[in-house]
Write a protein that binds this DNA or RNA. Structure first.
Length: 506
RNA sequence: GGCCCCUUCGUCUAUCGGUUAGGACAGCAGAUUUUCAUUCUGCAGAGAGGGGUUCGAUUCCCCUAGGGGCUACCA
């Protein structure tokens, strides 16, 4: 039997990178074992449903290259893959447990329970074996009364009857043996008063029905896994119970709690894969995509946040991760999110991009910046600027002087360094460049340097002005490399214009 | 409060009883680039504390401290 792993998010908004990492690890294990990677939407809480969230989740996985085998959109042999569409299935399982005495009906309202929790000493109230005899449920009430209530008031919950005094051992693949005492566990609600199942019921039933073999999820689920094991036992499914791996949490950069959706705004970096659009611009949130990240880089750094191959290799493609990933090496401790490191990963990928891979995006951005892309050499500009950026989108803003003849001069900086004796030297360089053939980096550089040397004017005075003449700025790639990309005509014209404007005496 | 998980440089981490405790990001210094960035080289920087076990503990066990998670008719 092949391995089947599922990623099971709730459509309560944008997914953050913690969720993405969970999806990634599920994907890696599934693919490594030649199994299936499944998306199941856990939308059993009608109150928290956010329109567009499900679509956002699929788009995110798609952007990252985490290809699904079964999902709500794709379908599959164990559909439907959305819990709201399987809603009729869950209650019968719970009712079966009631019949067998493993669960019971309860009519206590949320308000009543809240009150008990508030009034109990240090919030220690727990709906468990020690109190259920005094509560309003089918165990404490007379049979006739129960039957009457079921007919009269269908607003009941179904709770799991947890037998105290047993120890429940979980074999967690990343944490080893974890033992819980059932006396500490409460009688978890399985079916809510609205008839919907809770996460615990739906999750166990679906994992069973969908033949899930490995559950990989966040550490926040570790405490409730004891209940899940109890549920598998109650249903008699213990033989096909999946293995569990509870992932360490991704923490805020200051280590102060787990990373949350709002931390992106707070710390000034994206925490979502894709931007979350909104009609109200104030609510729109940046994603790694809109921030300019390559999906491969996001995958790479998320893979390394909580896992390490044990070698010194840090750069991994998705394919390499599939073969290299070793679930045994997943860490136990939470990891802080380090945006600088994420940027560094992206830089590694941007520097590897070929022009063909980048071209479309560069063109698009050039257009939105209002560039006349036909006026310059896009590939030349890219080649020169690529090693200088961490994000692909940083290139085009730096490249404007390749596409526009109206140069924006950094006037103050230039004025500070300008010496009148430089003017004639620039003029001379322009003259010489007119005839240099071929007009390339080596030739122009050698020729211009010779002019400067024979002129007696300091190199350090002329070179910055030459740069300013061509680009308007005081920094950037090598001057002659820029000249080569610009071409003879533009280079000569710019140098002459610059010299003339600044040297009225000429 | 209770239960559970965790603890190596500022950060992410390697080490599966014997290492000058290794690497990466960030930081600092230098080289290259007569600019800036890249790149390269170097420097600095860690086993939470206390007990055991052992010839020997970062590594195994216990305690303490600290951090995190859960404690809903949310997932």
């Amino acid at each position: 039997m092949s391995n089947r792993l599922r990623f099971a998010p709730s459509p309560t908004g944008a997914l953050h990178i913690g969720g993405i990492r969970t999806a990634l690890y599920n994907f890696l294990v599934a693919k490594q074992k030649g199994g299936q990677f499944i998306l199941r939407i856990e939308d059993t809480d009608q109150n928290r449903f956010v329109p567009g969230a499900e679509e956002y989740i699929t788009r995110s996985l798609d952007w990252l290259g985490l290809k699904l085998d079964e999902s709500p959109a794709l379908g599959g042999p164990h559909g439907p893959y959305k819990q709201s569409e399987r809603i009729h299935m869950y209650k019968d399982y719970a009712l079966k447990l009631v019949d067998e005495g493993k669960a019971y009906f309860a009519w206590d309202t949320s308000e009543e329970l809240d009150k008990m929790r508030e009034t109990s000493s240090d919030h220690s109230f727990k709906y468990d074996a020690s109190v259920r005899g005094q509560m309003n449920n089918s165990l404490s009430l007379e049979k006739a009364e129960v039957e009457e209530k079921i007919v009269a008031n269908s607003q009941y919950t179904i709770r799991l009857k947890v037998e105290p005094g047993q120890s429940i051992m979980i074999q967690d693949k990343v944490r080893g043996e974890v033992v819980f005492d059932s006396s500490e566990l409460d009688d978890k609600v399985l079916v809510k008063a609205d008839g919907f199942p809770t996460y615990h019921l739906a999750n166990v039933v679906d994992d069973h029905l969908m033949e899930i073999t490995d559950v990989i999820r966040g550490e926040e689920w570790l405490p409730s896994t004891a209940h899940h094991v109890l549920l598998y036992q109650a249903f008699g499914w213990q033989d096909t119970m999946p293995s569990f791996s509870h992932l360490p949490l991704i923490l805020k950069p200051n280590g102060n709690g787990k990373l949350s959706k709002r931390d992106g705004q707070k710390f000034g970096f994206p925490v979502f894969p894709l931007a979350w659009p909104s009609d109200n611009p104030a609510d729109a949130i940046d994603g790694f995509d809109s921030y300019g990240f390559e999906p491969e880089a996001v995958i790479n750094f998320l893979a390394m946040l909580g896992w390490n191959p044990g070698t010194e290799q840090e750069i991994f493609s998705l394919e390499e991760l599939i073969t290299t990933f070793d679930p045994e090496k997943i860490h136990k401790a939470g990891a802080r999110f380090d945006f600088d490191k994420a940027l560094w990963f992206n830089q590694q990928y941007v520097h590897k991009l070929s022009f063909t891979e980048a071209e479309e995006r560069l063109r698009k951005q050039g257009e939105t910046l209002g560039y006349n892309l036909d006026a310059g050499d896009l590939e030349g500009a890219f080649t020169l600027l690529q090693p200088r950026v961490s994000l692909l989108k940083e290139i085009m803003p730096l490249a404007y002087y390749f596409f526009s003849d109206t140069i924006v001069f950094e006037k103050e900086e230039i004025a500070k360094k300008w010496k009148p004796e430089v003017g004639p030297v620039l003029e001379k360089i322009a003259e010489v460049l007119k005839t240099i053939d071929p007009f390339n980096f080596e030739f122009t550089s050698a020729a211009a340097k010779e002019v400067i040397q024979t002129s007696g004017v300091k190199m350090g005075l002329v070179m910055p002005m030459l740069r300013a003449a061509l680009t308007g700025t005081m920094q950037g790639p090598d001057v002659f490399a820029i000249a080569e990309v610009l071409g003879r005509e533009k280079s000569v014209a710019r140098i002459q214009a610059f010299a003339k404007e600044r040297s009225p005496t000429l």
